[in-house]
């Protein structure tokens, strides 16, 4: 790890000023950045520690929206009563991520900005367009069992590893960004980029911007939601496929549906096509499968990950089924 200057920012104004130094990076819980620095994937000159910023609360706004401070720890957010009761899929997504220790460290803002876990990204001996633009992609034609099935390009097939963001995408969360230039808000859906021919550009955040908050809309359907994560061991592993879903059924007909997939693209994948297929359809296994099919029609496999298309289809169907018939038989 390169030696660096360390600045601990007491307030947002100091933080966003400090980040304008060339080679400066924000440091949150460190669970991703410190690991990448140790592997020399990241080599900042200055590290601006933002963990002492007073952005660690969940507030209910007068209009019913929820504002989550970006320095809130993942574990604290998952344990928060408002999140558990009003947005269970978000609590479940957070709890499905990493381990108890890492959730105690990782911040909400940092979770949004997680880097891919593609093994070639962290191996400096490998070619990776994301790490070193123009060098090539060793995942294509290499080990890509856990690569993207949506939105991949010839330059990159990496996925975004966050669980939390999958729920946030389904919930239509908003990201608040602040810099010396001011404050702006962006929808989380679309915040993460598809690789195209520039996979090094991962999100819409500018180099000098700080995530200060995440806002959730007041969304009654979210109270009936769940997050399902499918992975290679029972816990403490990244998703092969995950599903965040909320479902409202009246008189046997779907009246509202929210669906997003994780582990399938360089962004949390909001399943708009599936949502459209569900709206107004009878709440049956058949409809759930059709909705999954509608979304997965656009999926494209790499050499080793065709199974993820079928897995996603089944995970979506199963998650909707379980939401509709909780505790019901398979």
């Amino acid at each position: 790890m390169k030696d660096f200057a360390y600045v601990s920012a007491p307030d947002v104004a100091t933080a966003v000023r400090a980040i304008t130094e060339p080679g400066a990076k924000f440091l949150g819980g460190g669970t991703n950045l410190v690991d990448l620095m140790r592997q020399n994937v990241e080599r900042p000159d200055t590290v601006v520690d933002i963990t002492r910023l007073p952005l660690d609360r969940v507030e209910e706004l007068p209009d019913g929206r929820i504002r989550i401070g970006a320095m809130m720890r993942n574990s604290a957010l998952a344990a928060h009563r408002l999140i558990r009761t009003r947005y269970p899929m978000l609590a479940q997504a957070l709890l499905a991520g990493a381990s108890g220790q890492l959730r105690n460290m990782a911040t909400v803002g940092g979770n949004v900005l997680q880097r891919t876990r593609c093994p070639y990204f962290v191996d400096l001996a490998a070619r990776c367009n994301k790490r070193e633009p123009g060098s090539g992609c060793d995942a294509i034609g290499g080990f890509n069992r856990n690569a993207a099935i949506f939105g991949a390009s010839e330059s990159c097939v990496a996925t975004h590893p966050s669980d939390m963001c999958v729920a946030l995408a389904a919930l239509d969360a908003t990201i608040e960004l602040e810099s010396v230039r001011g404050v702006r808000r962006l929808p989380l859906v679309g915040f993460h980029a598809l690789p195209g021919d520039a996979p090094q550009h991962e999100t819409a955040i500018a180099a000098d911007e700080l995530i200060t908050a995440i806002e959730l809309p007041d969304l009654p359907v979210a109270a009936r939601s769940r997050y399902r994560k499918v992975r290679d061991r029972a816990s403490y592993a990244f998703a092969l496929v995950s599903v965040a879903a909320a479902l409202e059924v009246r008189d046997g007909v779907v009246t509202e549906a929210r669906l997003a997939l994780g582990g399938v693209a360089s962004r949390p994948w909001r399943a708009h096509a599936a949502e459209r297929a569900l709206m107004g359809a009878p709440a049956t296994e058949e409809s759930f499968r059709r909705a999954a099919d509608a979304e997965l029609a656009g999926a494209v496999a790499q050499s080793q990950n065709a199974f993820k298309i079928e897995l996603a289809r089944r995970a979506v169907t199963a998650t909707l089924r379980q939401l509709h018939l909780p505790g019901g038989a398979a």
Binding site: S8, L27, G29, G30, T31, V34, Q101, M105
Partner: peptide, 15 residues
């Protein structure tokens, strides 16, 4: 009192 992994924690952060 909270459990963390000390390998990903910089000592200076825990001053």
């Amino acid at each position: 009192g909270e459990r963390i992994v000390s390998c990903l924690a910089l000592a200076v952060q825990y001053a």
